[in-house]
Simulated scan of single mutants.
Amino acid sequence: MAPSGLLVTGASFAAFRGLHWGLQLLPTPESAAQNRWKWRNICVSLVHSLLTGAGALLGLSLYPQMAADPIHGHPPWALLLVAVSVGYFLADGTDLLWNQTLGQAWDLLCHHAVVSCLSTAVLSGHYVGFSVVSLLLELNSTCLHLRQLLLLSRQAPSLAFSVTSWATLATLALFRLVPLGWMSLWLFQQCHQIPLALVILGGTGLAIVGVMSINLGIHILVSDVLRSRPCPPTLGNKETRDCDGESIIRDDSTLRDKAWTWFSVSQFLFQLTPAFLGSEEKC
């Protein structure tokens, strides 16, 4: 199985690199003209997420044994799906190094290094089911990529952006946090029959991606859902204004204090979000 997996990984790398170059021949929306490379990079990531996320969901539906036996239980095509994903991450890492400085891309390169745990399945032919479960996260990444493309094309705020934001939060909980929790629990329960090196590697990767995912949810919740936040009230004045300048009457001082407290908490959470969330679609 390993030779075929390596062959598919190489073919996937070449295909995604070719897609990067091919998109240079297509027009870029005028609103995203200032960042053509990022637009192309996210479009390629969207293709990968659609392909592998849908493939993982369909595969687990048709072959649930992959979740029942994540080490050995998998059909031959499952390994090929994982190999396609490994090839993409190698291609995207190459694209990042080619078009950005190390200081600009270090966060995404670290993420790709963590995700390289998938290569264990390609090289050994084992843990393929575990890797396929991890590809469910790509269903959430699809929404993240769409959200970022809407931001680049200046479609925020809009109905499409609002729907995408809510879909991103929903899929983040269902297809990112739930699979991460299941994988963490399984790894903990099976640690006695898994090599210690793989337990450490897998546990570290799950912890890092889990923290990034929680920060992602906070960032999107604050920036998209809680966008209209009340501004600080003036003492002795029952009228305040929201951040869009619209007048809001507060006849109850308790209600006003609660609103200001929530505003402070939201601002604090927003400041906690790491700088790398400017490119959160890559998680």
Rank of each mutant, 00 (worst) to 15 (best):
L50R: 03
V86D: 06
L146P: 01
L46W: 09
L272M: 15
Q189I: 02
A105S: 15
N99R: 12
E239F: 12
V47C: 15
L118W: 15
F268G: 10
W37T: 03
K38Y: 08
L187R: 04
P233C: 06
A207R: 04
E246S: 11
C43A: 11
R36I: 00
G18L: 10
Q65R: 14
P274C: 02
L146N: 01
E239P: 01
M66I: 00
H74G: 04
S223Q: 11
A32L: 07
L81W: 02
F13K: 05
H72C: 03
P230T: 05
A32I: 07
L221Y: 02
S12P: 03
L97D: 06
G53V: 02
L277E: 04
L272Q: 15
R40C: 09
W166T: 13
V199H: 08
F263V: 04
L277Q: 07
K38G: 09
R40Q: 14
T273K: 07
W98Y: 12
G278L: 07
A156E: 15
F175W: 08
S279M: 03
V115P: 01
I71N: 02
Y127L: 01
T164I: 09
L180G: 03
L185D: 13
I42F: 00
M66C: 02
W77R: 04
S31D: 11
A121V: 01
S45F: 01
Q148L: 08
L187D: 09
R17S: 12
C117P: 02
W262V: 07
H20F: 14
F89M: 10
L46N: 03
S45A: 08
L7M: 14
A56E: 06
S61T: 14
V128N: 06
Q190K: 09
I71A: 12
E239H: 13
G5F: 09
P232I: 07
L57I: 12
P3V: 09
Q100Y: 14
L6A: 10
T240P: 00
D257Y: 04
H20L: 11
S158N: 11
A32V: 08
A2G: 09
F268C: 12
N237S: 13
R227Y: 14
P76I: 07
E246V: 09
Q190V: 02
S141C: 08
V178M: 10
Q189W: 01
L26F: 10
L226V: 05
G278W: 06
N41V: 05
L96K: 04
T234P: 00
D257E: 15
T94I: 10
S141H: 03
A170K: 03
C110W: 13
G181C: 08
T28D: 06
L79V: 01
S253L: 07
